[in-house]
Nucleic acid binder design. Structure first.
Lengths: 335, 335
DNA sequence: AACCTATCGTAAAATGATTTCCCTCGCCCG
DNA sequence: CGGGCGAGGGAAATCATTTTACGATAGGTT
């Protein structure tokens, strides 16, 4: 393994000069810089980043905690993060927590042991391991994305789920729908709560507060969508609008509707949320709410990096705009 | 930050003893071990992994190079890798290369700079950066998964794409199909070549060698599937079997078929490949070839770890079994 | 000629953990 | 009782790089 010493010997300069040309190029004259760079070229020298990180206490890596890597929504957010990291020269370490608090804590150890310089969490939960260092007068860089948390003192990026679900419900009501079934996320998850509130507000503002929707709690997966659709159809098939809190659940539900002989959108209109790529290719194509997934990732990363470079950020709350995408899965109900 | 020195001071032992109780507990008596552990507990000491890695020249992390994180096939493989890594105590660093050789090389630098102890590549390409250290008498731990490479001297995990595509083509031929359109992957990608060979072999063995299929080259994405379906339908709509080299392309194609007024499977049977979750929820549900995705990841990781622990592996080639999943998208053609 | 400034060298400290080498102490056996 | 042995634990070297504090030198300026 060639070290900085080898380079210095070949270039005929001191170790300090080699280090300077790499870390503070402006401190060394152009002439010697060239000599050193040529020597580096020749030897194929690669600085030992472990030694460097160890010395500087900076790992040049960030950690992204993902509840579920196989979820298309998250993988797009990650792409956004990775793009910005790329530009900034940071490395991205991904941890798939599977929603498991235990695993989440384990991964968070990376922050304590100086293996990463910052953490982006793609779900609402702040790992206990990080509490001490994040909630601090000199906080460890930490950004929360995807979920929107008002009541916590660290930066949060997300969309206005309440307004978005309001809008999409409003769309169905405008078309003439009155009775709804709702396939939600899990209780306690902010996006779930917010979207449910948006739905209810739309109902109340349209004087439909008395129409009690049938609600089934899913988990954002295809299977749970199919399963919930089955449940609500058995419980009370009189609804004409089926509102799902994720595209995957909506696509799962579409299949169940077909099994039950219900046509979409003629018999039942269906809406999703997220606008993953498959939404456009569902049968029928899904009316949904597009989230700026990549942008969420980009913004989260930018804020994190700013924080890491010392810009005081604390408690920034950013809401990015969503966009309703109307496709063939919704239309006025048969009268 | 509390260091090992602090702990040693509080425990009243030397720093060597503290290190030993953590790394080689059997080398220290139970009595002092307890004292040290209590001191660690008290101080909330977390070993600085950077220092540790630096000293031991082991980072306890592996790098996984992924062509496209948003591809459901890959994300499942990654899950498998991560599971095994979890058990073994290794950390997984993910690099989304986007198929870009440049980015691939950049990420590979992690291996040279000792930031990772091993690399798993989920596509066929061996980054140039790694060539020197992988193709070596004492090779850097490296495993290739997903693609199956015979002619390279490092471990490779994959499925028998040729046989799998043979089987699925055979299935269609048995049902009575004679004329096919094929939506492939990109030329030069091994899975593409293998699957295409499997298709041709099935044709020839069934004396259909003269039936020239219409072929369109896709890129495994939904959009390319839809686009290719359009092309082949325009070129020659007389085929009754549409063979796609990925589920995503098949799902994209299904929509185009509908646009063209073609019914699946009555008019045209469609097959995919991979058996991603969405395949079951396509309309109609997709006949496809299930790949043992998670298992591929697990096996790849296990082999890599074995390699990292010094077991001589060199040139292991593993083929895992696939399973044909017959669903509603294929049936005998109308006569 | 005196003074400055930019540039680079030298030497050394510092980073935190691991590991080698060696010492000590207690115990056992002859 | 002496010698040997083995286990436990301390001191110090080590890892590669960065950075600091100076000193030296060359070249230019006044």
């Amino acid at each position: 393994m060639t070290t900085i010493k080898d380079v210095s010997r070949i270039a005929g300069v001191s170790i300090a000069t080699v280090s300077r040309t790499l870390r503070n190029p402006e401190k060394v004259s152009e002439k010697t810089r060239e000599i050193v760079l040529k020597a580096i070229e020749e030897t194929g020298y690669q600085p030992n980043m472990l030694a460097s990180s160890f010395r500087t206490k900076k790992s040049n890596a960030i950690l992204v905690l993902v509840p579920n890597m196989a979820n298309l929504f998250y993988s797009r957010v990650i792409r956004g993060i990775q793009q910005v990291a790329e530009e900034t020269g940071y490395n991205v370490l991904l941890g798939d927590t599977g929603g498991d608090v235990e695993i989440e804590n384990r991964y968070s150890g990376f922050a304590l042991t100086k293996q990463v310089d910052g953490v982006i969490q793609l779900s609402k939960h702040l790992p206990k391991t990080l509490e001490k260092i994040v909630l601090n007068e000199n906080p460890f860089p930490y950004v929360n994305a995807c979920e929107y948390l008002d009541d916590r003192p660290f930066p949060t990026i997300g969309v206005d789920n309440e307004a978005a679900q309001y809008q999409i419900t409003e769309h169905l009501i405008q078309q003439g729908h009155r009775k709804f079934a709702v396939i939600t996320g899990a209780n306690g998850v902010p996006v779930h709560d917010d979207r449910l509130r948006g739905f209810h507000r739309a109902m109340i503002q349209n004087r439909l507060g008395d129409e009690k929707p049938i609600i089934c709690e899913g988990d954002f997966s295809l299977d749970s969508g199919a399963e919930c659709a089955r449940k609500v159809l058995i419980q009370d098939p009189s609804f004409t609008g089926l509102i799902c809190f994720s595209d995957e659940m909506a696509i799962g539900a579409l299949q169940t509707l077909k099994e039950f002989g219900k046509k979409t959108p003629e018999d039942i209109s269906v809406t999703g949320f997220d606008d993953i790529e498959f939404a456009r290719y569902a049968d029928p194509p899904l009316t949904t709410m597009r989230q700026p997934t990549t942008e969420i990732g980009e913004v989260a990363a930018k804020i994190l990096f700013a924080q890491m470079e010392g810009t005081p950020i604390e408690n920034t709350k950013i809401r990015l705009p969503t966009e309703m995408i109307i496709r063939a899965s919704t239309q006025a109900p048969a009268t």
